[in-house]
């Protein structure tokens, strides 16, 4: 576990910053909710927006006069599914590629540790940050909601966050796969960000018409819909299982690829 602990130690500043950003963002979103709720005609305005926009940001619930609906649209769909997905894929896509690019991998590999272990420990080093952001944010939501005299279903708020963990783990595993393939961190980063973003768009497109509905299945975002849990109280167990399965497959592929590849002097 030494590599995981080391990895965590060197990234605590980023984790702290991420949490502060989301605490601030959440507090801000909730603080404007009372105004939105009171303002008349906002719901008509929402429905007048282009459908493509709504399918991206308002999956599974467009009623923003409800706190759950508002959070879904203003925080979860883009903040969790897109932003955090991109963030964790980005971070993980640097984990090995940066060591190869900076050539510190030579030093690391001169220790009696297998490549598989390095990879898995680096992955494990990300888990606490994923869990932490899923603790701080709902706590801030509950605190702020109480402050503005709103209620939110604690159980489904918990499920919303709990179900995001396998989604974010899958994003990490995807990033890690890119990070063992490329020698330059930047290329791995770009591809990781691009893939998460692309999959988000694909999922949105698939919701626009029946014709496209099948293509959503290739998107990680398809298997995690915070709105569905938070608003409709419908937890997609199968989605969670699929995300875990994808994570395992991606990790295994990354381990095998990493074990077989040459670490050449560039």
């Amino acid at each position: 576990m030494k590599i995981a602990i080391h990895s965590l130690k060197t990234s605590w500043k980023g984790i702290l910053l991420l949490n502060l950003v989301f605490i601030g963002l959440t507090a801000m979103v909730i603080s404007i909710f009372p105004t939105i709720k009171e303002s008349s005609g906002i719901q008509e305005y929402i429905h007048s927006l282009p459908e493509s926009f709504l399918s991206i940001f308002g999956r599974s619930g467009l009623d923003i006069t409800m706190l759950e609906g508002f959070l879904n649209m203003e925080l979860y769909q883009w903040g969790w599914v897109l932003l955090l997905g991109v963030y964790f894929a980005f971070i993980s896509s640097s984990l090995i590629s940066k060591e190869i690019e900076n050539k510190t991998i030579d030093m690391l590999l001169s220790n009696p540790v297998s490549r598989g272990r390095i990879l898995l420990e680096k992955f494990l080093g990300l888990v606490p940050s994923i869990v932490l952001i899923n603790i701080t944010t709902p706590l801030v939501i509950l605190g702020c909601a109480a402050y503005i005299n709103e209620t939110i279903d604690v159980t489904y708020l918990f499920y919303t966050h709990f179900a995001s963990i396998p989604y974010l783990l899958a994003a990490c595993a995807l990033g890690l796969l890119f990070s063992v393939i490329f020698d330059e961190a930047r290329r791995a980063n770009t591809l990781a960000i691009g893939t998460i973003f692309g999959m988000y768009i694909i999922e949105a497109l698939s919701l626009l018409s029946e014709k496209y509905s099948a293509i959503g299945k290739i998107s990680l975002a398809h298997y995690y819909d915070p709105g569905k849990i938070l608003i409709q109280h419908d937890v997609d167990i199968m989605g969670i299982v699929i995300l875990f399965f994808i994570t395992v497959v991606l990790l295994a592929t990354a381990v095998i690829y990493f074990q077989r590849r040459d670490i050449a002097v560039v």
């Binding site: 030494k2 900076n102 050539k103 001169s110 220790n111 009696p112 002097v265």
Partner: peptide, 30 residues
């Protein structure tokens, strides 16, 4: 590797670590 030491030709160490942290880290891996 348990029994081997290595000095690479192009020495690239973890710049953000202090030497003490670096030696601690590697010491724990061995």
């Amino acid at each position: 590797k348990e029994l081997t030491g290595y000095i690479p030709g192009e020495l690239n160490l973890y710049g953000d670590l202090t030497a003490k942290d670096f030696l601690d880290y590697f010491g724990k891996l061995r």
